[in-house]
Amino acid sequence: MPNQHITRFSGMLNQHELKERYIFIKQCRENGFSREDIAFLLGRSSYHIIDYEGLSTHIKMDYMDHEVMAELFKTLAPRAPAFDYMIDKHNISHEKRLIRGTYTSSEKGCLYQFNHPWTIKGINKPIVIDMKLCRDYNYDEQIRLLLKFQLNKLIKLGYFDHKFAPIKIYDYIYSTIQIEWCSLFTPLLKQVVYDFIRNDKLIPLNESGHIFYQIKL
């Protein structure tokens, strides 16, 4: 990968915890959401997603996260790695083991590799998730103008008089934007919302680790 950046991480996880992260990463990327995109839509900080993918067991996804993901992800959940979990009639699936990983990113995409101690059909090999980035930037300015118009409209209609979740903003925009732009507007939506915050049109509110937006009172 040209101009690539490599991040290394590790954590003590059991088989189920690694499978959860595998499914999360695959679904995010297969549905076109970057780390920053999914963090914004879940109302989470980018560090929450980075640490979750980076095998931190201190970071959890709660019921609100799962509700949003169920709405966002249009593809079927991928099949998780089928680790061998029985050794001499002993179930090892819940035993924590050291997992080492790397995250390699570039303008072309991202690649995850997880090195683990388990086998699949008797063979141990790393788990690799390789996702290519294919994004059309030709319509960014048009989309940005439309997003500003729609956010101003939502403010005038009173949607932001009380805390308003990012997924609700996304749903409204998704229902109004032309179909060919549906896969392009999420990164720009975050930028426009942050522009509104800088211009004192909106303020972020943190509630139980989730970020909402409201007009500045």
Rank of each mutant, 00 (worst) to 15 (best):
L41K: 02
K121Q: 15
F212Q: 09
R100H: 12
A70E: 14
M69Y: 00
L147V: 05
P81H: 13
Y47E: 13
I49D: 04
Q191N: 12
F185Y: 06
K121L: 12
D171P: 01
F114D: 01
F24W: 06
Y47N: 14
V128I: 15
M131Y: 07
P117I: 01
T75A: 14
K19A: 10
Y170M: 04
Q15V: 06
V192R: 07
P117Q: 11
Q15W: 00
I173V: 15
F40R: 04
K190I: 01
G209I: 05
T186R: 00
D161L: 14
L217W: 01
R44Y: 00
Y137E: 14
M69A: 12
L147K: 07
I99G: 03
Y139M: 10
K153R: 10
A82G: 12
D171M: 05
Y112K: 09
Y174M: 10
K89I: 06
W181T: 03
Q214H: 02
D171R: 15
I129C: 06
Y22I: 11
W181D: 06
I177S: 02
K216E: 10
K96R: 13
F114R: 05
Y172K: 15
D130C: 11
P187S: 11
I38P: 02
I197S: 04
T186I: 14
P81M: 11
Q142P: 06
L41P: 08
H90A: 10
K96Q: 11
H58M: 05
E107D: 13
R29D: 07
Y85T: 13
N31H: 03
L55K: 04
G54F: 03
I129S: 06
E17C: 02
W181F: 13
G43F: 01
S208R: 12
V193C: 06
A80H: 08
L202A: 07
D37I: 05
F73P: 07
G54Q: 09
Q178L: 06
Y213L: 02
H48Q: 09
R198K: 11
P2Y: 08
K190C: 06
Q191G: 08
K74Y: 00
Y112P: 07
I6H: 10
I167N: 09
I120V: 15
H90D: 10
Y159V: 11
I215K: 10
A39K: 10
E53P: 00
E141C: 02
T7A: 05
Y85P: 02
F83L: 09
Y52I: 08
R135L: 05
A39S: 15
R79H: 09
K121F: 02
I92K: 00
F196N: 08
K89R: 14
I155C: 01
